[in-house]
């Protein structure tokens, strides 16, 4: 059981990195990640919401939707759960730690439309994960997302000094850099052959 969980974690965070192999959460990758600091902030907030979302949607899906034959409401419920979760997290952080809120606050609303979170819950259902696996899957996916975001931000901080061809400035070069990162991450593929 323990080994299984570690495998799920490594797969979600590195070998099958959400951003670089499933293309989930590209918008923040291209849009936000200009500074390492904000990348870390957004990454942490997302990781938190992902873990929570995996936990809550697993319970709702397996304890309510499936037993009552309501699977066709899956997408509507999942997106509502994620939206309310984000709202709740925002209120909670604002009440308990204004400092943390100042650091993360602006990112929180962005998280709802981050496809990585809905994607996570959908993959979780598709793969038939058990409860613990789902929680670990959410955590791993969040860590992987943070990793990709921070790497990207680091590269882009350096890119400012590079001589990028005029038409590729901005989006173009970001996408190409992401492509290189994706290639590099394929190298991790052998890790779990063990």
């Amino acid at each position: 059981m323990g080994k299984e969980l570690i495998l799920v974690f490594i797969a979600a965070s590195i070998t099958n990195n959400f951003v670089l192999t499933y293309f989930l959460g590209i918008c923040p990758l291209i849009g936000v990640s200009n500074k390492i600091e904000s990348a870390v902030g957004l990454g942490l907030a997302t990781t938190f919401v992902m873990t929570m979302a995996a936990t809550v949607t697993w319970l709702i899906y397996n304890k309510i939707l499936v037993p009552f034959d309501l699977v066709f409401l899956q997408y509507v419920t999942f997106i509502m759960v994620i939206a309310s979760l984000v709202q709740f997290v925002e209120m909670f952080i604002r009440k308990t730690s204004p400092q943390l809120y100042r650091a993360l606050g602006i990112f929180l609303p962005l998280i709802t439309t981050n496809c990585a979170i809905l994607g996570l819950t959908l993959f979780m259902v598709l793969r038939n994960y058990g409860f613990l696996e789902s929680v670990v899957f959410g955590l791993g996916a969040g860590v992987g997302f943070t990793l990709a975001l921070v790497l990207m931000a680091g590269i882009r901080e350096e890119l400012v000094f590079a001589d990028v061809p005029e038409p590729l400035k901005g989006t173009g070069i970001s996408l190409i850099v992401a492509g290189m990162l994706a290639l590099a991450f394929m190298g991790f593929g052998g890790i779990i052959s063990g």
């Binding site: 099958n16 192999t21 993959f123 598709l126 793969r127 038939n128 593929g189």
Partner: peptide
């Protein structure tokens, strides 16, 4: 003969 469906985890999914 007999035919049967089976499934399990692959490299990237089921």
């Amino acid at each position: 003969g007999y035919a049967f469906p089976a499934e399990g985890n692959g490299y990237q999914g089921i």
